[in-house]
């Protein structure tokens, strides 16, 4: 554990809580891609199966359970509790275009051809692209509420901090995990365009982020 890793995990947690509280308080999930949230729940589910096989640390176990619980709570709020506010007509990204290549890649490129390892690899690859339905939705509607952009900012910050964590670990422990690093860099690149808009538009005090 290093400061980048801890800050990354905290950013991830903050992002998820921001989204959950936004939906809960406004009683609306307008502008939120339910598809992205289902994909994230799937990411956590397939990655954290090792909760049943190995114990790493109290921190590790608690964070995994919290991420799982919060992601399922978010999906519940979007598709059950506040489904009337869900903009399904704008959430039209074809998820199968992500799932098919990701499933294929996780069978081809993994550390061991075992069910748990393949599912872990699947979760890493899927996380890299899971935000695409949300970004697609923003592109389609041309705008995002500022609170949604804060969510995306912390989610992107989490990925950027994990890269710093890997650089740190490579230098201090000679540790590197190529699958995670490549996927993590790809995932972070998806956020670059968003980061630019976030800093140039949202932080200038406008209520919404509108695309040109």
């Amino acid at each position: 554990m290093n400061v980048f890793r801890l800050a990354g995990d905290v950013s991830h947690l903050v992002a998820i809580i921001i989204l959950l509280l936004k939906i809960w308080r406004s009683k609306s999930c307008a502008g939120i891609s339910g598809k992205s949230q289902v994909l994230f729940a799937l990411v956590f589910t397939t990655r954290y199966l090792d909760l049943f096989t190995v114990f790493i640390s109290v921190y590790n176990t608690v964070m995994k359970v919290v991420f799982l619980a919060l992601s399922y709570a978010t999906v519940y709020l979007i598709y059950m509790r506040f489904r009337n506010s869900y903009n399904s007509e704008n959430d039209t990204f074809r998820v199968e275009f992500l799932l098919v290549p990701v499933i294929g890649l996780s069978f081809l490129e993994n550390y061991a051809f075992t069910p748990l390892e393949i599912l872990w690899t699947f979760s890493i690859f899927l996380e890299a692209v899971a935000i695409m339905p949300q970004l697609f939705m923003i592109t389609k509607t041309g705008e995002a509420e500022s609170i949604t952009t804060h969510y995306l900012f912390f989610l992107g910050l989490y990925r950027a901090l994990y890269i710093a964590n890997w650089v740190w670990r490579y230098h201090t422990e000679s540790f590197y995990d190529l699958i995670a690093i490549v996927s993590g860099v790809v995932q972070t690149i998806f956020f670059c365009d968003f980061f630019y808009l976030y800093f140039t538009r949202v932080l200038r005090g406008r209520g919404k982020m509108t695309l040109p």
Partner: peptide, 10 residues
């Protein structure tokens, strides 16, 4: 992959 090889990350 060993359990001590990266699985401590979330």
């Amino acid at each position: 992959m060993d359990d001590d090889f990266g699985k401590d990350e979330l």
